[in-house]
Write a protein that binds this DNA or RNA. Structure first.
Length: 407
DNA sequence: TCTGGGGTCCTAGGACCC
DNA sequence: TCTGGGGTCCTAGGACCC
């Protein structure tokens, strides 16, 4: 039987902001992107008391809490704090899986004796994070990741919940299904429709019907309802190669002018290309995503003849896809993604023209790494400089793709 | 002043080959 | 002189996570 711990920072972005600016402490604040059309990324507990939640528009948030203070997300600060926290976990086990910027799983099966039990490890982690960084976390402990995550959800903020193996069947019997990681709005609604509200009910529902309706997900649902999860805690150095790299952006104003759209695509292609080059991957498939004014969203992908990671090549591929689409409605979001990736060692091209382009890109990346994104860029990007806000996504992982270089 | 951005995985249909 | 199948790859969309 394993001992898995899930650590979840409480209102992470908001807590970090309140810690770094004492004037914000004890007050309802919310972290958002810098753009007009951005949403609430995280609300402080003071703001949550008013009903302010992640995903709300600023407008909706102010309706619920007029005295709300909005703070623009500070990506660098959060990654810095996150990296410190994740490093601290390493003191207790090398088996740390970073699940997101503010969450991690720790396999403590081999560390319990050394540190005197799981309660003590939880106490040490909590107090060290609190002392060093001034923020709190909720911790869940259970025999597997699914249950550890469920446990950490039980008490917030600053909670510690331990699910002992013998208590689990009783705990699950009346646990609402949507508390399980993997059952979202859609699945939850569908299961409710057939009268399944608790894990107990789900576990007794005929597996054959679940399979018929959900395929492999049906099997997964059944075992989840029983609290079964055999997935291992995978540290970054053992995690698999990244599958895709992409960026998307909601525009400040909807656009229907092809030239203006292309200018944004160039910016996105540059961001995608640069990240791919930094990770030393190239990809065979380029995907363009468009969201129209009415929110219908389409994606079109195209396999390329060769693996590529040059910004210009990605841009060309994206505009080729754009040419196939009609722009009968203004566009509110654009996205570019590179997938079917493979690890690619840097190799100087053979032909002079390509070689020149390669060296140019390398030099440009070097300058941009050193002096900031878009220090050197295409002339057509000039008028947009600074427009691309770099808001960190909560799904960001500190280790990123570090392991790729090892392969 | 309606509705972000980074990913992964699964499904279903069609093309194509044998 | 007809409607077989299996396998694989490609594509689009949607559900889920944070």
């Amino acid at each position: 039987m394993k001992t898995i711990m899930h650590v979840d920072m409480n209102a992470f972005f908001a807590a970090v902001e309140q810690q770094s600016n004492p004037a914000l402490r004890g007050r309802p604040i919310a972290v958002t992107g810098s753009e007009k059309r951005s949403i609430i990324l995280t609300a402080s507990y003071e703001a949550r008391a008013f009903g302010v939640k992640t995903g709300m528009t600023r407008f909706a948030a102010f309706q619920r809490c007029p005295q709300l203070t909005l703070v623009s997300a500070n990506n660098r600060l959060y990654t810095h704090v996150s990296t410190e926290i994740m490093a601290l976990f390493q003191d207790y086990t090398p088996l740390v899986e970073v699940f997101s910027v503010d969450e991690a799983f720790l396999d403590l099966s081999g560390s319990l004796k050394l540190f005197g039990g799981v309660e003590r490890i939880a106490y040490l982690i909590k107090s060290r994070i609190k002392t060093r960084l001034g923020i709190t976390c909720s911790i869940g402990v259970a025999p597997n990741k699914l249950l550890a995550k469920l446990a950490s959800e039980q008490r917030k903020p600053d909670g510690l919940t331990i699910f002992r193996p013998e208590e689990i069947p009783a705990l699950l019997e009346n646990m609402p299904i949507q508390e399980l990681c993997g059952i979202g709005r859609q699945l939850g609604r569908q299961l409710h429709e057939v009268g399944i509200f608790t894990c107990g009910q789900l576990s007794r529902f005929p597996l054959t019907i679940l399979r018929k309706k959900y395929g492999v997900i049906g099997d997964k649902l059944h075992s989840m309802a029983l609290g079964i999860d055999s997935s291992p805690v995978v540290p970054a150095e053992e995690s698999s190669l990244v599958k895709s790299v992409g960026h998307s952006r909601t525009l400040r104003h909807d656009l229907d002018d092809r030239q203006a759209i292309c200018a944004f695509l160039l910016q996105l292609a540059e961001m995608v290309g640069r990240r791919a080059r930094r990770y030393q991957v190239s990809g065979k498939v380029v995907t363009l995503t468009l969201r129209y004014t009415d929110f219908t969203t389409i994606s079109r992908q195209q396999a390329q003849e060769d693996y590529l990671n040059g910004s210009e090549e990605i841009y060309q591929a994206a505009t080729q896809i754009l040419d196939r689409l009609s722009l009968d409605q203004p566009v509110r979001l654009l996205g570019v993604r590179l997938s079917s990736l493979r690890f690619k060692t840097a190799q100087l091209p053979l032909f002079p023209a390509e070689r020149r382009q390669y060296l140019l890109t390398e030099a440009r990346d070097h300058v941009n790494d050193r002096y900031g994104d878009f220090t050197i860029m295409s002339a057509s990007l000039l008028e947009q400089k600074g427009k691309g806000s770099h808001v960190i996504s909560p799904a960001w992982r500190p280790q990123g793709l570090r392991n790729i270089a090892v392969r």
